[in-house]
Design a protein around this nucleic acid. Structure first.
Lengths: 203, 203
DNA sequence: TCGAACTTCGAACCACGGTTCAATTGTAAG
DNA sequence: CTTACAATTGAACCGTGGTTCGAAGTTCGA
């Protein structure tokens, strides 16, 4: 039966691609994109360097899919938050926590925003476009809070970049074997970053 | 007179080193460290690639001095703030603004914290040590605010990293020809980041 | 002017890492 | 068993970019 054979091989192929992407994402997060070689990725995924090129066109494409996956996860979170019904603060808090989980988690590809410029133009524009869409969505959430009177901010765009920047930098110092878990870090950071938006009377 | 000759040549040498470091810092900030070649640095500093090796041992050393200079500038600011007499919030605000100015300014070397891992161990440990000293100083300022009752934070260490992270990420999106100047960005970011520390009653 | 140093440079070197390729093994249908 | 295709691999290729080298140019005191 030809059909089941194609189905099976396609599934195997996808599983291997997924395995490679996970291994690559982990290395990218731990040692940095530039300092991670194809030979290291191959070793981590238990196959030969040459075999990587049967599944991906090259290192660029691997990095591309890592970032693409991570962004999809974040976009889903922010899309859900947009439809939510709680306070804007609570919804934004959830988005930020998901952001950290995606970045630091083992499952999805990390190093999302960092080193986007390492990609060649064709792939870069696609990632940048998606990243901008995400940033705009988060900014929209902040702006919504301002409109509703929950938040007070002179420049939502700048503040949004500050929030995402603080979150993205976690990949540079976070260590899984540390005292704080990824969830802990996300909770604390989100709390602090959202607090800065709230209307308040200084003591 | 031998003395004046040595003096003069030493001064010329230092001036050239400074010129090279400025050019390199600018390129590092604009195009990234990995994507900046020695040939580009040489072109920007108006001398041949080979001549760079008369002034520096290699690319690593150039990057090292860029980061070292930037950290000195930041350390000076935080040291001054520690001796200051105003509110902790005001002093911290000043430190953060200086941080942004140093990072985004034309004078000092940018790309301070980013890509520290690009250095070989011998140089890296020195930079990391100085960077940690700076981070500890900022964290001390935050802790001082908590002790004095100005601030309320569960984890000063985490919040400090968040602040510095938000600041450091500016080098990835800031453009000198944009609407907001480096000073503007520094002011807005510092305001937001310090606000998150303040004791407040949510609306 | 002379000479010894400081400074500069063109050209080549060479290692590293992404990539390619021909050939081998594994798999499943006929 | 055979055949066709998927999967895998060792070995080599090769462009990029940091680096080195020997010589030529420049400065400055004597």
């Amino acid at each position: 039966m030809v059909r089941s054979s194609n189905e099976r091989s396609r599934r195997r192929r996808d599983a291997q691609r997924d395995l490679i992407l996970r291994a690559a994402a982990r290395l990218f997060r731990d040692r940095g994109v530039a300092d991670t070689g194809m030979r290291e990725i191959a070793a981590a995924a238990d196959l030969s360097p040459a075999n990587l090129y049967y599944y991906f066109k090259g290192k660029d494409e691997i990095l591309f899919y890592c970032q693409d996956r991570a962004l999809d996860s974040m976009l889903a979170a922010v899309a859900g938050a947009k439809r939510g019904r709680g306070s804007v603060a609570a919804r934004l808090d959830g988005v930020l926590r998901t952001h950290v989980s995606t970045l630091l988690g083992e499952v999805d590809g990390a190093s999302a925003h960092l080193l986007v410029d390492a990609l060649p133009p064709p792939l870069r524009v696609r990632i940048v476009a998606k990243r901008d869409r995400y940033e705009r969505a988060v900014r929209g959430l902040v702006a919504a809070g301002v409109r509703s009177g929950e938040f007070a901010t002179a420049s939502p765009a700048l503040v949004t970049r500050a929030m995402l920047g603080a979150l993205n930098m976690t990949v540079l110092w976070f260590r899984p074997d540390g005292a704080a878990s990824a969830t802990d870090v996300g909770r604390e950071l989100a709390q602090y970053l959202v607090r800065g938006l709230h209307i308040h009377s200084a003591a």
